[in-house]
């Protein structure tokens, strides 16, 4: 049954290092993720919360025949999707900011298990800018933040994607969090 699952096969090829499969996989995931994120964000209900990690994992469940891939491929998929999720949220926040023109000082509240409310454009943009700075100082730390924060990857999954030990990821993640907390609280 269902032997011809294109996205699953793309993922398998991309994990093995095929750059064309990687590009096609990014296309497929981005299209799917953006449509669904866009539809949710349009609702603009400040009482509700958009959880990027939930969306990323739901995309995984929807697009991939899970029993056909190993956990490393899963980590690879989530890593790709988390990068795309970041791009989607930042694009969206920028558009809305441009549309609003002003509207109070940015407030930072990246807490409560990623409580990104639909009104947290400032958080997303501040985090994005901070990650740009962090990326220049330590690329791997920035990558880990993107994977953990936007994709909900575990330390072990990040380690598989980056080809380092889980212990290394734990250290980088602790340092990146401390650095971001300080950077963002300075405003």
């Amino acid at each position: 049954m269902d032997t011809d699952d294109q996205v699953t096969r793309l993922l398998q090829d991309a994990t093995r290092g095929d750059p064309r499969a990687e590009a096609a996989l990014i296309d497929a995931v981005y299209t799917d993720l953006r449509r669904r994120a866009g539809a949710m964000m349009k609702r603009e209900n400040p009482d509700h919360t958009l959880q990027p990690t939930a969306l990323v994992h739901e995309t995984w469940m929807r697009l991939i025949r899970q029993n056909a891939v190993d956990w490393k491929s899963k980590a690879h998929f989530l890593a790709v999707a988390s990068t795309l999720m970041r791009r989607i949220l930042v694009d969206h926040a920028r558009k809305r900011n441009a549309a609003r023109r002003g509207g109070g000082a940015p407030k930072i509240s990246l807490e409560d298990g990623l409580g990104l409310t639909t009104d947290s454009d400032a958080d997303v943009l501040a985090l994005h800018d901070a990650l740009e700075v962090l990326g220049k100082l330590d690329t791997r730390q920035a990558d880990i933040v993107v994977m953990r924060f936007f994709g909900g990857l575990t330390n072990a999954e990040c380690a598989a994607v980056l080809g380092v030990s889980t212990r290394t990821v734990e250290g980088d993640w602790a340092m990146a969090r401390a650095w971001l907390r300080r950077h963002l609280s300075k405003g």
Partner: peptide
């Protein structure tokens, strides 16, 4: 300053456990 901002228990940037 970094060590002063190092707090494992803080909710900051802690996504829900995806698993």
């Amino acid at each position: 300053e970094l060590l002063g901002h190092d707090d494992d228990d803080a909710a900051f940037m802690r996504p829900p456990d995806p698993d």
